[in-house]
Design a protein around this nucleic acid. Sequence first.
DNA 1: GTGGTCTAGACCACT
DNA 2: GTGGTCTAGACCACT
Lengths: 126, 126, 126, 126
Amino acid sequence: MIKIDPRSTHPYYEQIISAIKQQCLAKVLLPGDKLPSVREMAGTILVNPNTISKAYQELERQGVIETLRGKGTYIAERQATPLNKELELKLQKQLEEFCLEALYLEIPKETLTKWIEDNYQKLKKE
Amino acid sequence: MIKIDPRSTHPYYEQIISAIKQQCLAKVLLPGDKLPSVREMAGTILVNPNTISKAYQELERQGVIETLRGKGTYIAERQATPLNKELELKLQKQLEEFCLEALYLEIPKETLTKWIEDNYQKLKKE
Amino acid sequence: MIKIDPRSTHPYYEQIISAIKQQCLAKVLLPGDKLPSVREMAGTILVNPNTISKAYQELERQGVIETLRGKGTYIAERQATPLNKELELKLQKQLEEFCLEALYLEIPKETLTKWIEDNYQKLKKE
Amino acid sequence: MIKIDPRSTHPYYEQIISAIKQQCLAKVLLPGDKLPSVREMAGTILVNPNTISKAYQELERQGVIETLRGKGTYIAERQATPLNKELELKLQKQLEEFCLEALYLEIPKETLTKWIEDNYQKLKKE
DNA sequence: GTGGTCTAGACCACT
DNA sequence: GTGGTCTAGACCACT
């Protein structure tokens, strides 16, 4: 079950990508599990099929899922792809801006560290 | 000196906002310092004056700078605005998504902590 | 229907903001109602789309409306935002100057009280 | 002694007008009192003479002060001028927008009434 | 179609 | 000279 927040500033397709990754981390979705078809999911979460399609394409690019022609879409085996380095660099850039904002708000780094720990724990349990 | 990256996904005006905040943190800009006029800065970084204006207006809203009618724009005294709490909550939300991504890439939280420390040090010194 | 007065000292975008708030108070616009698109309203009241955009963005900042990505703009559920306290303080300052002017014109405070009552009644009914 | 706040959104000349009216109400300035010359006041409050000039001109238009050629500027006898009706209408317009804002912030009219009483008392005593 | 961003160029009030 | 507002017209991401 994926929930979309239309009020979020994040595009629908990104919200879908996040939700699926989250369920992988929480072991709700396991390698080999079949995902609903584009149309099916579009019907379930009431979103345009194009939007689902876009999410699936990006998930495939990132190696999270695999599409088997005519068979469907499946959660992929976890594996280090060359893309991961790229994504990691992107994350690092993002953190840079994040820290700028945090420092400007005078948030001590200990608070950030604590927030991260909280998030890590929550994401693993869920 | 502010550098704009036209390839960035961040709008120009946000890049300008970040750059000025960064220079405040690094004590390159101090309270009371005069910023270049809208037109002057527009000429320097080759961006339309309206774009600079938008950045300045948002910076003023955030309490980073002060606009003196017909005189110019100045770095403001630091002070907690009611907006700060709001911005902090936004940051916390952002970190949530960040951690999801990081966990998915199997980045240990110790690495994140280290990255944060590096950023904090760099931003203060610069 | 929104009417703009080109002779007013108030900028167009402020007049639009006032008009929409007024219609919310008068229950002409209710939470969930869709506002005309930026271009549509621009065409109706013969103002540049950018100006409408500016008004919508400020209204969103104040929590009066909500923007749904690629879908449109809607009247938001009423709720106290942290901004409200700020706006209230601004109003109080404004009243100070207002009273100075009124006292100078020797308008008794009972008259002011009556004016306020009239306005309150009119704005709720309209 | 007049104090100018460069941070205020109100133009300098309006601040000067307000200050002089306020001192009249508080009987610090009485009919017949001589005001400093444009240049003198400009020197005292560190403002461009043009700005003082503009303030004096508007004060004269409103019948608050009188300029006697070659002699100087004096506080005028209070008298109902035809302008007063005009200013009163302007105030009423202003109050309309003020009430819109107040109602939107759900400030009860009793609060406004109290604020007005406070201001009236303060302005008369000062 | 929807809002967000940006450029080029203009006019205005205030200092 | 300074920032604020506005028009006309363009391009972009998202639905």
